[in-house]
Amino acid sequence: MFDFSVWLTIAIMHAVAVASPGPDFAVVLKQSLQKGKKAGIWTSIGVGSGILVHVVYSLLGVGLLIQANDWLYEVLLYAAAAYLVWIGFGALRSMPSENQTQDVPAAKGTSKNAFILGFITNGLNPKATLFFLALYSLAIPTDTSLSVKLAYGVYLAVATGLWFVFVSLLASHASIRRIYQQKGYWFDRLMGVVIILMAILLVVSQ
């Protein structure tokens, strides 16, 4: 049965994670700034679709592992907290630079290539792997039905895609590019604080 409180927890954790600095943001920003709105939107759709890769292996493996090994819960908890602290401090160390985007190889030409670029960037991101394993094992009760778990996963994919479509639309404007290049490090630092606080809450709430 669908649990609104569980969904709300997932939505909040996902919102913080998806808005934090990372390869998905970098590749969508780069595609949007360099190749325009269409490329940015298709890259965003690819990123959202890549979320389903993490959802599928989370559903197939983590629940069974948690049921068979009680100690794995705490391992995942502290691994997730350590990971969040690590990326949080990395964001806090962000400094001003002439170009805030990462040098991510961009697809050339078609919308298909843009989609594939976004899909691979998210699907093969090891940081996303750890985050989604922790998210599914900590936020979703193990007795939740498969259909509801799938519904949560579809929400995560759609919400991710919509967020990055929004980012791509904003980044298509030259004025936004100039602002980000000058002040983007302040956004990175703010998200670093939020991520570290989330890691602390994960540990002290247990």
Rank of each mutant, 00 (worst) to 15 (best):
F119K: 03
F119Y: 15
F119L: 15
I120R: 01
T121I: 10
N122M: 14
L124I: 14
N125G: 08
N125R: 04
P126V: 12
P126Y: 05
P126I: 14
K127F: 03
A128T: 15
F131W: 06
F131G: 06
L133F: 10
S137C: 11
S137R: 08
S137F: 06
I140S: 03
I140Q: 02
T142H: 06
T144Y: 06
S145P: 12
L146Q: 11
L146D: 06
L146P: 00
S147M: 10
S147L: 13
V148D: 00
V148R: 00
K149F: 10
L150G: 11
L150N: 01
G153L: 08
V154Y: 05
V154E: 01
A157Q: 00
A159N: 02
T160S: 13
G161R: 09
G161V: 11
W163G: 08
F164K: 08
F164Q: 06
V165T: 00
V167S: 02
S168P: 04
S168M: 02
L169R: 00
A171Y: 05
A171Q: 00
H173M: 09
S175E: 12
I176V: 15
I176M: 08
I176Y: 00
R177K: 13
R178L: 11
I179Q: 03
Q181F: 07
K183N: 08
G184H: 02
Y185F: 15
F187E: 02
F187Q: 09
D188E: 14
D188K: 08
R189H: 05
L190G: 12
M191V: 04
M191F: 09
M191H: 04
G192E: 13
I196C: 14
I196M: 12
L197Q: 11
A199M: 07
A199H: 10
L201Y: 13
